[in-house]
Design a protein around this nucleic acid. Structure first.
Lengths: 242, 242
DNA sequence: GTGAGGTAGATTGTCAGTCAATATGCGTTT
DNA sequence: AAACGCATATTGACTGACAATCTACCTCAC
């Protein structure tokens, strides 16, 4: 029989490091490129973003770009109104705080599931997540920082074993991306983010839900409040809501 | 300055009633048709579902069908593996219970936000949601029942004013659709579902979070457990997981 | 000069047809 | 009877085109 060629990415730990997303289908590759552009600020909120321009820039056909844009828009990174150009989504202050509340609730659910597991395999998964994060969190490249951050939180949900949380992840990740992309504070102080995450991991290890909740609020809600403060400081431009 | 022209749909109350989803774009119409087919069982789990067959059946081109299928797949109703036919998603027992846990957490967040609102406008929104549900919950048409059920839960999240909850809704609704489509118990006893929802509304009115939590668990987790029991009874076919 | 209206351009929505890449199913061979 | 290879079906992706719709500018009347 032809041995189903194991993707090296699975068996090789080194390949688990955030590689530049070699996607199988071309559409997925385009999706990654678009997201990257948004994270790095190459595509700024409000910038005109046309299908044909992207197709020539990325060297793929318009239908492919179109499918990619639709998917990214569905996740929430782009706003897509019929016959109107796509706009990069932006969050107002209320949306940032709303997300923080919900994320605490979902992280608590994940933590509950992790603690409830008596075999210890889920806690071991947490350790693996932390190990990867520790290696990349303080990288110079902001893109690596950002992806490490996302992978960390995704890893917590994954470790919980709750399949529905994984279903909610893409939308959550998209919104975290929007928020973090403009969070200059975190961008300039990755060390602080690192410590907050370490604090969270230690809280999970304590298996004390109240302790975990405190750490989560400190990490998520407080960060959101700071971001909101920065938002009102900076450009009071267009409060694009969606 | 040019006054931003008000959309008539906003100012016209009659247009706000739930119409049978006259979508503007053809793609959205196709999406509705596909979802309808899944809910009604016209498209059964495991059935072969080809782009070309759908395009001829619905009278639209293959690219349009393709975009619709991609979107539905992203919401989770369809499984989409490269070069494999799309399959209707199915939930295994663990997934049903996972979703129930997370939904309780999210509903609790919504309830917290509703109670925290001192103006009473959010509670008033809940009453409006209930009023609509009450009118349609016991309809003969199962499709109407199902959509009323979804609209009820969506309404609770909407009433909370938490924008991020609304972002999580499409994925949640897709999974509820999968679960409810095979829940023959609810299908045969809409009266019981009605009473559970009434119980939940009364709990919210009590403004007692513990009371609300009890009602939610009774509604969501217990229903999930019953569904799981039915699942193991019936066809132990393919436990398509995703 | 200012505002209303219309027209042209640009962009998206949708379609048809085509070719390549890949999985599925059947027949053949050992 | 089991494994292998080939034909077929289906999806992934592209090109080109046309219709529907929005945007911006320009003209004209007051």
């Amino acid at each position: 029989m032809t041995v189903e060629s194991n993707r090296d990415a699975v068996s090789n730990p080194a390949a688990l490091q955030l590689s530049p997303a070699e996607s199988v289908t071309r559409r997925d590759a385009v999706i990654d490129q678009i997201k990257r552009g948004i994270v790095l600020g190459t595509i700024k909120p409000g910038e005109k973003l046309t299908e044909s321009a992207l197709s020539t820039a990325l060297g793929v056909s318009r239908p492919t770009v179109r499918e990619a844009l639709n998917q990214v828009a569905q996740e929430g990174l782009l706003i897509h109104e019929p016959y109107r150009r796509l706009r990069v989504a932006d969050l107002d202050a209320a949306a940032v705080l709303d997300m923080a509340d919900v994320r605490v609730a979902l992280d608590m659910q994940a933590a509950t599931d992790i603690i409830a597991d008596t075999s210890g395999s889920r806690m071991k998964a947490i350790d693996a997540v932390w190990e990867v994060y520790e290696r990349n969190a303080l990288a110079e490249d902001f893109l690596v920082q950002h992806e490490s951050h996302l992978a960390f939180h995704r890893g917590i949900w994954a470790a919980s074993g709750n399949s529905f949380l994984m279903r909610l992840w893409p939308v959550t990740a998209a919104h975290m991306t929007i928020a973090l992309a403009r969070d200059q504070a975190t961008r300039q102080d990755p060390q602080r983010a690192y410590e907050m995450h370490l604090n969270l991991i230690e809280a999970i290890h304590s298996r004390d839900l109240e302790c975990i909740h405190t750490a989560l609020v400190e990490h998520t809600v407080d960060s959101a409040r700071e971001l909101v403060a920065l938002m009102s400081d900076g450009s009071t431009d267009r409060p694009i809501r969606f």
